[in-house]
């Protein structure tokens, strides 16, 4: 590292370059690069044509599409509810606000397997909420609705937690100015506040969606796991692994990696465009 310091690293009086850099690079290599490299190498050995054949199988295709579509819908639901929740928590004062604020973090802290069995018991046809829905003719658990609820649960904190600090920093004088210029409250919210929240809200949406695409623990209990209908992509990987079909598992894993990268990339682009339009940095 010292040999390279002239070119790659600018000289610094700070101590600990070798130690901190060494630990960082060693850990990143061992924990992230090597395992993901092993996945890509496996896919490469298997060959692009074979890989495509695995992914193109109707059951795999259906699972990938299901995971992606429901993750997107859950992201949208979280986007709307998350902004609402952030607004309520920052702007309004009411009894129980602190508890509500703490509850937003619960999906981060609560193990996904616990969330999975609890949501299933709650929304199953004989569960407390599921039975009410069943009377209205709606089955939630063991259908795509159930998966959607689990995905909304795991993505719940992301939008709220990214938008909250932005709302805290909004200068109320902007809203006053808008009001004095004759805007109604609704116009102020729509034309002044929402554009300010958009970049943070989209970041939260991207994080929630990325989490939801790959979510496994909270979903498999409530999904019912019916092939072509409620079978998510991560479950297919587990099934393939249980049959020691490592090539097929690697193929689906690579497809999922590609999907989450594409999703993150497109969201980053949207963010850049939104910020540019807003005239922000």
């Amino acid at each position: 590292m010292a040999v390279l310091s002239g070119r790659l690293i600018r000289r610094s009086a700070m101590p600990g370059l070798g130690l901190s850099g060494g630990i960082t690079l060693a850990m990143v290599s061992m924990v992230v690069l090597l395992p993901i490299g092993a996945l890509l190498a496996r896919g490469w050995q298997f060959g692009p044509a074979n890989l495509w054949e695995v992914i193109h199988h109707p059951r795999v295709w259906a699972a990938l599409f299901l995971s992606f579509r429901l993750a997107f819908l859950a992201g949208v639901a979280n986007l709307i509810f998350g902004v609402l929740l952030a607004w309520v928590l920052v702007r309004y004062r009411f009894p129980g606000r602190r508890i509500l604020d703490a509850a937003v973090d619960l999906p981060f802290a609560l193990p996904t397997a616990v969330a999975g069995i609890a949501l299933t018991a709650l929304y199953a046809p004989n569960g407390a909420i599921g039975s009410i829905a069943a009377q209205a003719g709606l089955r939630i658990a063991y259908t795509q609705w159930g998966i959607l609820i689990a995905l909304i649960f795991v993505g719940l904190p992301f939008v709220t937690r990214t938008v909250q600090p932005v709302i805290e920093e909004i200068d109320r004088e902007v809203e006053e100015a808008s009001a004095t210029l004759g805007a109604s409250r609704l116009q102020t919210l729509r034309r002044v506040i929402l554009p300010m929240l958009a970049p943070a809200a989209l970041t939260g949406f991207a994080l929630a969606m990325a989490r939801a695409v790959g979510e496994y623990g909270s979903v498999i209990f409530i999904a019912g796991n019916i092939p072509m209908k409620t079978e998510i992509a991560p479950l297919l990987i587990v099934i393939q692994l249980e049959q020691f079909n490592h090539d097929a598992a690697a193929s689906i894993g690579i497809a999922m990696l590609a999907i989450s990268f594409a999703a993150l990339l497109s969201i980053n682009l949207i963010q850049i465009v939104t910020r540019a339009r807003m005239g922000h940095v």
């Binding site: 790659l8 690293i9 600018r10 610094s12 700070m14 600990g16 370059l17 901190s20 850099g21 960082t24 990143v28 924990v31 992230v32 690069l33 395992p35 993901i36 092993a38 996945l39 994080l207 990325a210 989490r211 695409v213 790959g214 979510e215 496994y216 623990g217 992509a233 991560p234 479950l235 990987i237 587990v238 692994l241 598992a249 690697a250 894993g253 999922m256 990696l257 989450s260 990268f261 993150l264």
Partner: peptide, 29 residues
């Protein structure tokens, strides 16, 4: 505390596990 090339890439790699499905992580291992 240091300036070096590829810093953005390193931060991306550190963040990567956020967006990788846990099942895919297990598969990699």
């Amino acid at each position: 505390r240091f300036e070096f090339r590829g810093k953005a890439l390193l931060i991306t790699l550190i963040d990567l596990p956020f967006s990788v499905s846990p099942v895919v992580a297990g598969l990699c291992i």
